[in-house]
Structures are given as structure tokens and as C-alpha cells.
Nucleic acid binder design. Structure first.
Length: 1053
RNA sequence: GGGUCUGUAGCUCAGCUGGUUAGAGCGCUCGCCUGAUAAGCGGGAGGUCCCUGGUUCGAGUCCAGGCAGGCCCA
């Protein structure tokens, strides 16, 4: 064996080496190959969009998406990890619009849909290289070669197959619903999209008079001549022209008020906030009395007998406005609903670009927001405007282009998800959510109030909706496959080769099975969320091929994305799978929090606080970033990704691991330790060996249990503890064993143990920090071991033995050492000064070996374990003024003085017997109770007491002359060592030392000349200063002054 | 407005089914060690456990109501 190569501290160097190794040996492929026959552990990749750069926040789910597959692979499972890319949708179109400098659908049409779509297809790969290099550099293993791509014809065909099933089961229907609509993008937005863009804005809110026309059909009677007005309120003045009705809460109280000679009706509860100035309530009545009342709208755009009257509606609230809601069916969901129920007319004075049409000449051609002031002006002139107030509220904006959305009744295709609501809920409950509240709360809440899925989009780049409508008889069919398309096509040749995208697919006409006439495709594409939500099926091009692959990979065992995917991908996967396959498509789901910037704000492109991951990866390395994310807090917590936080594990954790290995490497190389040749028997192991091996086993248990329950943090905590104990206790206390000459039993035991722990630790850690573990493994592995740590099996908790008693005893020992240091610290006695003995009170038997460790660590002669140190302590009674004060008042001080005069023993005895004590104080009998006294344990002179938990320590700090002498010796040696360092000598330099000091020190040094010289590597040590030394310094040691002169000897090694 | 999560030391976070004196790491500070040495170790100081009520012998923990922040949804 040539020895163990040192591991460099620079994470970048060792990570690059590991990457090269994996590439050269094709390690990932070997992992898959090796586990091919194993049980499946199915992971689904939530496809990223490669038309945006990856940023640091993207790593949050990624690290877990890599951890569990790696862990399960080492556990022997076959984990395929097929990659995927989400490629359709509005974001892609918007990028292209920006590139080609257009801003609207007509402009796209003018540019040419084919050219546009081609650019979209290119655009989706814009940052693919960035994604791939980040994925590779972070050590995320993913099968990118076989990644699914949502825009391919195969993928689309599978999606079509799903949609056709839905259609055939009556779950796909055309509706007319009010959608949040972006006039700029020209498309309705799905609920998950709208959610992204709420902002607080100030809009004009107006109260408008609606004059009452007649009261024939209504309970309400006008009592006075002159017209009374219903006061209505809206934050969208532009919807006024579309008014067709008013709504009131039937059971709420309304009031008629008089103000400045006019009469107004509004909800009683809102009088105060809706009215300006003084008013007088004329009378009160319930809302239902107003129902049926006819009024004069500000703009009459429709001639319909049903229009312009008052209706009852449950949605009318008493929190804002006037309690009389203006109804514009085309521009509000509630409004539309009411119009449907009451058979009200429905019309659009606004077109899809958000501009008024000729139907409303006052504002024709004006966009709705610009029309607001015109309308307000007009209403004011006509004395219909009661009040105008700027109103602050949340309003949705387009999440991509920031245009204010309009609620707009549109034709749209829907999936009737409400039909499978119960099943969705049932399936949701089958999933283990991490954290649980994502499933029960966030998604559960959404499912409880489920609405149908608005599927269609009036756009260009997306999976085309596979519905064809007969031009003459109106029959609709959903095409389920290319084969069916060809079969039904007018031009079969075209159908057999056509690309399934607009505009190509638009050219395919079918023959109607009913009437034989032409069928044309509906112009829509579908919500891209349906694409990604179908990956459980479409990634395999199922059912057209890969039937086995599909069956073996459904459902997934594990998925993981950020929590914003709850109503995104998590929901769409669940919805499509529930409809198509009847069950939940995944069993375990981790929803991660977000990446925050240094000040705790969410990282997002729009805020411009996105941290480039490379800034951190290139400095601190992938392992460091990974470990930070795993160990800092639970996956679902948001994390600050500032440099100061992220870099911490490098020094705390990874460097310790590196140091520990390097310690091993240094000595194992010197001694030519060979794990194949040198093997310790169980008998040769000392207490430290047995202990650390036990700790190793219990760590394996904890980590395995943790990971099996998707509890990453407790796994990392267990590992961090093990490493801390390995480095700061096992190695620290074992150093002498490695320094010895030769290669006898104990030394072999130490090497064997440290080797075993290191190599197992590296296997435990491999899924977390794949780079450093590979580097160490490569330096440790022997012939016959797998060629990569990632091809190893995961350490098995069955293999080792856990000795709980030993672990407890060692923990107590460490506590004793800590207490010993504490006591020395308080008494200002350096560790260098040997002490006579320590008495230890603990209920754990420590044993000889462990006591020896403590003696060495604390530099004491003996450790005596005693059942209790009580016998050595003196108890001093302290008065408790809290009880004495209130009871005795001014005599409390005298009672306290009296207490001091009493023997503690007699007090204790009395209290133990349960009696109180009579004291004569100020000529009066006073009762002293147990609660009046607290006892302080005081160690005898020269002893130090330290205690924590169950452990008490009594340190005998009395120094004999001999101990003092030994202390001085250590002091002298220490001083010279320091001087060596100050002088800049190498550790191995031999030196010549001269000194000058008083008689006492001179005698001491002379007496121990040999020992001292050996320790400080001095070839000569004389009690005079003669020549010119390289380094001279005067020091104070104890009560003496000493001048040292140091020079390197020529005979240095 | 509704749902949900979070609020514990200067920073990042643990605190299980309510139970001694609320913990860890980093930072700070004092010190130690010196054959892992541009390493290592120990001690200490830092807390109104967001606030207010309530339940209880006992509340960081349970309940109610606030406040602040995040996310999701209206």
C-alpha cells in the first residue's frame, strides 16, 4: 500500500475530481444497472421550464429530489429518475413576444403563427444548458437522456388520450364562465395563475344613485312625491354600462334616509361608512321588500323586460359598499351566476382587448381603465354620482405582464372536476404529505371548495385541444390518438405526419360520423398545467407503448416540489390521475419552503433579489450548499440563502470530516496500515473503540429511521453528533494510541476502528454530500470494494451492535470532563497544572478505562467514583426572605441572623423529621419552617464543586509541592513550545536552548533536564546565555523570571 | 375577507404526548491545548419563549382573542 492520500480542504478541487470520476466511470449508469433487478422506488420529476435561468430557490426541492433516490438506491431499490421538461404555455409565448417585439394577439397573427410557434419551440431550450450544468455540478443524478418533453407529439398523444376519455365520460364541457382575463395576453387565466398576481392598489370606488321607477310589483312603497334613489357601489366604474340589475341581501335591514332634501336607500349597517355628512333615517325595512323594484340605470344598453330591477342574493355582504350591489353579468362571477338563475340579459359592451365597443358610444375604443374617468365625469354631470373615494383593495394582475385583469365572461372548455370531488378527497387522504397540513389544510381546503378546471386557452403554443366540431350538425368528438385522427381525416396523408401543434393541426379536417360533413378543430390550446399533471402517463407515451414501464412506475413513491405547487402540479397530477386511473399518483410528497434572500424576502425575479447559485457553488461547493439545506431546518421551512448562513457547514461539518480523515491518513500512511492485513479482534478493542462502534450503529439506526420517514433533519442531526464525537472525543482521546511505535494489538484496534467508522460514515453520508464522501471513499477503499461510494450498499442497522450502557457511561464521562474544565476555569487552575484527584458522583458505573480517559483529559491523578459527595460537603443555611418577610416583618432580619448561628445538621435533622423549629427571637417564640430555609452545599477548603444534571464533581485542588513542581515543569515546556512557534521554527526542528533564571527554577530544570529536552526537541539545554540566539525572550513563570534563548541546531532533521 | 404556517439568545434553528434551572450551532468573550497545527478544545455572557386573557398544582407547549410576517385562496 502506498499510503493514504491527503484530502485537500478546497471543496471545489475535490468536487471537480469527483465529477470527473463519475463521468469517466459512468457511475450513475452503473448504479441503475446494479439495481435493475431490485424493487422499484418510483420518483417523478416535476418538470422545470428551461426558458428561465435556474436560481438558488430552485435548489430547495432539488436537494431532496436527489437525496431520497440516492438513499433508496443504496438500499437496493431501482430508482429510475427519468427527467422531464415543461415546455408549453404562456410564459414561453411571452418570452418570444418580447424577442420579436410584439405585444398582442393580432400582432402575433400578423407575424405568422407558424413562425411564432417555431420560435417558441426553440425558446424553451434557451437555458437548458444552464439547468443541466447546475444539475450536474450539484451532483443531482437524473436521467436526462430519456427525459420526457411535454411538447413532443408522443407526449401530446398521451394527453389527448386522457382528454378523450374525459370527454367520452362527459367530463369535458363547454361553459360560459366569468374568468379573470388578461386583455393584453388575450387569454383567460386559470385560478392557479391568478393567485400569483394579487396586489394592493387604489381604485376609484363610486356610489351611484339608481332612481326608483315604480313600485307596483314590490312591497316597498314610495311615500312622498319626488324620486328616491337606491345607492349602489362599485370599485369598477367601467362595468356601469353593463349594469342589468341590482342585488340586495333579503334578510338584512335597509334604511331610507333623507339628506339635503334627497332620499336614499341603502343597508342600515353601512350608513355610517357609505354616507357623507348628516342624514336622517326616515324608516327601516328588510331587504326583501326592495326585491322587484324597478329602477333607472345610468346607461340603458339593453331593451329587455327582465332588466333593471332589484333581486335578492346571498352574496351581498354588509362589510363594504352600500349593501346594494350593482350587477354586470359579463364581468363578475357572482353577477353571472345571478343572471343565469334569474334569466337576466347578458351582453358585452367591452371586447377581448379590454376596449369598449360601438355599443357604448360614450367610450367606444377606450380601454376600460381609461374609461373610468370619462364615466365618472358623465355620472357627475348627470348628478348620479353620490360619492367618489379612492379605495384600497387587493386586485389581481396578470402574473406575467402585470396588466390588471378583468373579470370577463368567456367561452371556455372545462373539466368537470367537481364530478370527482369525493374521489379526489379520498385519494388525497391516501397521500403522506410532508408537512401534513399541506394535504389536509391547503390542498384539502382547495378540494373542499373545488371548482371546475378551466382548461382551454385562446393562445398558440400549447397542447392543442383535441376537439373537432362538425360545421353543419354541430357534433363534437375528442380524438384519442393519431390513428384515430388519420382514420377520420379528410386528408389522411396530412393527418399521418402532421405535427400536433398549431397552426399545423388546425389544417386537419375530419369527416363527421353523423352527417358526413367537415369537422374543424376548436381553436384552443390547453392549460400547460394539464401537460405536466399528466406526466404519470404521458412520460411513457402510455398507452401507445411502454405499458410495462408505466405499470411499474405508477404510482410514484415520492415527489417533491416547492409548496406553491400545491394547487399547481400536486393538484393537477392528482386530478388527472384520479379521473384517468382512479387513484392518487404519488404516495409521499414533500412540499418545500421557499428560498429567501439574506433579509428574509422571497427570491423572485420581479424583486430582483435572486441569488445566482454559482456565486455560492463556486466558492463553498455543492456539498456545503446541500448540507446546509438538509440540516438547517425542516424542508418545508423557508430558508435564508445568504452567504453567511450557507457557508457555515463547510467549516463546522465538512472540514471536521476532512480533518478526521486527514488525521487517519497521516498516521495510517506512516504505519502502512492495511485494512486487509491488519484486523483487530473484538478482544483487542478498547473502550473507546467499542464506544464509537456502538455510536456508529445507533447513528445508522437513527438515520435510517429518519430517512424512511422522510425526516431529513433528525438524520442530519444524528450524523453531526457522530462526527462531533468521532473527532472531538474518539480521535482526540485516541491520539496517543496512534503515536506509539510498532504495530501491536491496541494500535491495530485503533486503526481498524477508525477505518471502519470512517468508511461507514462516508456511506451513511453519501446520499447527502456525494462529493466529499466519494473523495474519502476513494482514498480508503481496498481491492474488491465497489469502485464508487455510490455503488456501495447503505450501512445496515442490523450489522452493528448498540451498547446503550456504554454510550451512557461515555456521555457521562464527557460531562465529567466538561465539569472538570468548568471547575478549573472558575478556580483559574490551568489544565497544565496536575491535580491530585477528583471525586465523581454519578449513578452510572464509569469503569476503569473510562476513568483513565478522564484522568488524562483533566490532568488529574485519580478519579474516584463515589455514591455521593454529600459527606464531603458542608451545608450552610440561607434564609428565604420570601416566606420570612411577609410573616415576620421587621423580625425577618433577626431570624436570619439567628439561623446563621444554628448548626446546619440540627436544622436538617428537624426538617427531615417533618417538624418546624421554635426560635427565640426578640423575646418571642417564632416558628421556623422548612420552606424558610434553603441549604447551600459548600465544598471544603481547597475543593471545587461542579454539578450538572445527575453528575456532581468534587475536585481536590489542594496542591502539594510535588504537584506544583510538575505544574511548573509543564509551564516551562509550554513556554518553550510557544517560543518555538513565535520564532517560526518548524515542528520537527531540533533546537539549542539556553536560559537564565533564579535558583529554584534552575534546580528544577536541571533535575528534569532529560524530560524537558526530549519534549521540546532540544539537543542542548544549558543554564546560561552565551552566544547570539536566533530568538530571545524574557518570561514570567510562576513567581520567577526567566530568559530563554533559542536557536535551531544544525542537526535538524 | 377565508385557509394555513411561522414568531424561542445578536444570527440560524431544536424543544415529543404540558413537569426540575428553556437547549444546540454560529457569532461574541475569556481561557485552554499544542505530535490533526493557517487545526483543535473548554468556560462564560446573551432569552418578558410576539402580546393579552383562560384552563391547570404547574404553560414555550393546551384553549381563545389579538399583533407581526410568509404562503395559498378570494
Amino acid at each position: 500500500m502506498e499510503g493514504y492520500e491527503e484530502l485537500v480542504k478546497d471543496p471545489i478541487v475535490r468536487e471537480k475530481e469527483a465529477l470527473a470520476l463519475w463521468q469517466q466511470q459512468d457511475t450513475f449508469a452503473k448504479c441503475l444497472e446494479q439495481t435493475k433487478g431490485g424493487q422499484r422506488y418510483v420518483f417523478y420529476e416535476g418538470p422545470p421550464t428551461a426558458n428561465g435561468k435556474p436560481h438558488l430557490g430552485h435548489l430547495m426541492p432539488r436537494v431532496y429530489k436527489d437525496l431520497f433516490p440516492r438513499y433508496k438506491t443504496m438500499k437496493g431499490y431501482y430508482v429510475a429518475r427519468k427527467g422531464g421538461w415543461d415546455t408549453h404555455g404562456l410564459p414561453v409565448e411571452l418570452e418570444v413576444e418580447k424577442e420579436i417585439g410584439v405585444n398582442s394577439k393580432p400582432e402575433i397573427e400578423a407575424y405568422g403563427v407558424e413562425r411564432f410557434v417555431k420560435r417558441c419551440k426553440e425558446s424553451v431550450w434557451r437555458y437548458k444548458a444552464d439547468w443541466e450544468s447546475m444539475i450536474e455540478r450539484m451532483g443531482f443524478w437524473m436521467d436526462e437522456e430519456n427525459a420526457y418533453v411535454t411538447y413532443t407529439d408522443d407526449y401530446i398523444e398521451s394527453v389527448w388520450w386522457e382528454l378523450a376519455q374525459m370527454f367520452d365520460r362527459g367530463l369535458l364541457y363547454q361553459g360560459h364562465k366569468v374568468l379573470p382575463f388578461c386583455p393584453r395576453c388575450g387569454t383567460g387565466l386559470s385560478s392557479h395563475e391568478v393567485a400569483q398576481g394579487y396586489k394592493t392598489v387604489k381604485d376609484p370606488s363610486i356610489s351611484v344613485r339608481m332612481l326608483i321607477n315604480g313600485d307596483e310589483e314590490c312591497c316597498y312603497k314610495q311615500e312622498l312625491p319626488g324620486r328616491t334613489a337606491l345607492l349602489t357601489w362599485t370599485t369598477t366604474p367601467w362595468t356601469m354600462p353593463a349594469n342589468v340589475a341590482l342585488a340586495v341581501a333579503p334578510r338584512a335591514t335597509y334604511a331610507e334616509v333623507e339628506q339635503n332634501g334627497e332620499r336614499l336607500i341603502l343597508a342600515k349597517a353601512l350608513l355610517g361608512q357609505a354616507l357623507e355628512g348628516d342624514y336622517r333615517v326616515v324608516r327601516q325595512f328588510l331587504g326583501k321588500e326592495l326585491v322587484g323594484l324597478r329602477y333607472e340605470p345610468p346607461y340603458v344598453l339593453v331593451d329587455d323586460a327582465t332588466a333593471y330591477s332589484v333581486h335578492a342574493a346571498e352574496f351581498v355582504n354588509m362589510k363594504e359598499g352600500t349593501g346594494i350591489v350593482h350587477i354586470a353579468p359579463a364581468y363578475g362571477e357572482d353577477d353571472y351566476q345571478l343572471a343565469q338563475e334569474e334569466g337576466l340579459p347578458f351582453f358585452h359592451p367591452v371586447n377581448l382587448s379590454g376596449e369598449f365597443t360601438k355599443e357604448f358610444p360614450l367610450c367606444s375604443g377606450t380601454s376600460v381603465k381609461e374609461a373610468d374617468p370619462l364615466l365618472i365625469d358623465d355620472l357627475t354631470k348627470r348628478n348620479l354620482l353620490y360619492r367618489l373615494v379612492l379605495y384600497e383593495h387587493e386586485y389581481p394582475f396578470c402574473w406575467r405582464c402585470d396588466t390588471p385583469l378583468l373579470y370577463y365572461a368567456m367561452d371556455s372548455w372545462y373539466i368537470k372536476t367537481t364530478a370527482v370531488k369525493d374521489q379526489l378527497n379520498t385519494n388525497n387522504r391516501q397521500i403522506n404529505w410532508y408537512p401534513a397540513h399541506v394535504g389536509s389544510g391547503r390542498l384539502g381546503d382547495f378540494l373542499a371548495n373545488l371548482k371546475d378546471w378551466a382548461l382551454s386557452r385562446d393562445r398558440y403554443w400549447g397542447t392543442p385541444l383535441n376537439l373537432w366540431i362538425c360545421e353543419s350538425c354541430g357534433k363534437v368528438i375528442a380524438v384519442a390518438s393519431r390513428a384515430q385522427l388519420v382514420e377520420l381525416a379528410v386528408d389522411r396523408k396530412l393527418a399521418s405526419t402532421v405535427e400536433f401543434h398549431r397552426p399545423y393541426i388546425d389544417a386537419v379536417e375530419l369527416v363527421c360520423g353523423e352527417c358526413g360533413n367537415k369537422m374543424r378543430r376548436v381553436p384552443n390550446v390547453i392549460d400547460a398545467w394539464f401537460d405536466s399533471g399528466s406526466m404519470h402517463t404521458a412520460q411513457w407515451h402510455y398507452p401507445f407503448e411502454n405499458t410495462d414501464e408505466f405499470k411499474n412506475s405508477f404510482p410514484a413513491d415520492f415527489i417533491c416540489e416547492a409548496v406553491d405547487q400545491t394547487r399547481g402540479w400536486f393538484y393537477t397530477l392528482l386530478a388527472t390521475s384520479t379521473i384517468i386511473h382512479g387513484e392518487a399518483p404519488f404516495r409521499n410528497c414533500i412540499a418545500t419552503g421557499f428560498g429567501l434572500d439574506e433579509s428574509g424576502l422571497k427570491m423572485s425575479k420581479s424583486k430582483g433579489n435572486v441569488v445566482d447559485p454559482w456565486e455560492l457553488i463556486d466558492v463553498y461547493g455543492a456539498d456545503c450548499l446541500r448540507w446546509y439545506l438538509y440540516s438547517s431546518s425542516a424542508p418545508w421551512k423557508s430558508k435564508r440563502l445568504g452567504e453567511a448562513n450557507v457557508k457555515e457547514p463547510l467549516y463546522r461539518f465538512l472540514d471536521t470530516l476532512c480533518n478526521t480523515y486527514n488525521f487517519f491518513a497521516l498516521y495510517a500512511s506512516i504505519d502502512s496500515f492495511d485494512p486487509m492485513k491488519h484486523q483487530a479482534t473484538r478482544q483487542q478493542l478498547n473502550v473507546l473503540d467499542k464506544w464509537i462502534l456502538s455510536r456508529l450503529s445507533s447513528t445508522v439506526n437513527k438515520v435510517t429511521t429518519g430517512l424512511d420517514n422522510y425526516d431529513v433533519v433528525s438524520a442530519t442531526e444524528a450524523i453531526e453528533s457522530l462526527l462531533e464525537e468521532l473527532s472531538n472525543w474518539y480521535v482526540r482521546s485516541s491520539r496517543r494510541r496512534f503515536w506509539k511505535g510498532g504495530m501491536e494489538g491496541d494500535k491495530i484496534a485503533a486503526y481498524t476502528t477508525l477505518y471502519r467508522v470512517l468508511i461507514d460514515l462516508v456511506r451513511i453520508l453519501a446520499p447527502f454530500v456525494p462529493f466529499i464522501t466519494e473523495a474519502i471513499y476513494q482514498r480508503l477503499r481496498t481491492m474488491g470494494d465497489p469502485e464508487s461510494v455510490h455503488l456501495c450498499s447503505y450501512p445496515d442497522s442490523e450489522d452493528g451492535q448498540v451498547d446503550h450502557d456504554l454510550e451512557l457511561a461515555m456521555a457521562a464521562a464527557r460531562q465529567v470532563v466538561s465539569l472538570g474544565h468548568q471547575a478549573r476555569n472558575r478556580a483559574r487552575i490551568k489544565v497544565r497544572q496536575p491535580l491530585h484527584r477528583i471525586l465523581v458522583e454519578t449513578n452510572l458505573p464509569l469503569g476503569e478505562e473510562i476513568c483513565w480517559l478522564i484522568e488524562k483529559e483533566l490532568n488529574v491523578g485519580t478519579i474516584e467514583q463515589v455514591p455521593t459527595v454529600e459527606a464531603y460537603l458542608k451545608k450552610t443555611p440561607n434564609p428565604n426572605f420570601r416566606t420570612l418577610g411577609p410573616r415576620l416583618g421587621a423580625k425577618a432580619q433577626m431570624a436570619a441572623a439567628w439561623l446563621k448561628t444554628q448548626s446546619p445538621e440540627s436544622l436538617v435533622k428537624a426538617f427531615d423529621a417533618g417538624t418546624s423549629i421554635e426560635a427565640q427571637i426578640d423575646d418571642e417564640d417564632v416558628e421556623i419552617r422548612e420552606e424558610d430555609v434553603s441549604f447551600e452545599a459548600v465544598p471544603p477548603k481547597g475543593f471545587l464543586l461542579a454539578e450538572e444534571g445527575e453528575v456532581r464533581l468534587l475536585v481536590d485542588a489542594n496542591l502539594s509541592d510535588k504537584l506544583r513542581e510538575q505544574g511548573l515543569m509543564r509551564e516551562i515546556m509550554h513556554s518553550v513550545q510557544l517560543l518555538r512557534k513565535e520564532a517560526g521554527f518548524a515542528v520537527s526542528d531540533r533546537i539549542i536552548v539556553g536560559y537564565e533564571t533564579d535558583r529554584r527554577l534552575t534546580d528544577l530544570i536541571t533535575e528534569h533536564r532529560e524530560t524537558i529536552a526530549a519534549e521540546i526537541l532540544a539537543v542542548d539545554l544549558v543554564s546560561r546565555l552565551e552566544q547570539d540566539y536566533e530568538y530571545t525572550e524574557e518570561l514570567t513563570i510562576g513567581a520567577s523570571t526567566i530568559i530563554f534563548g533559542l536557536s535551531r541546531s544544525d542537526k535538524s532533521e
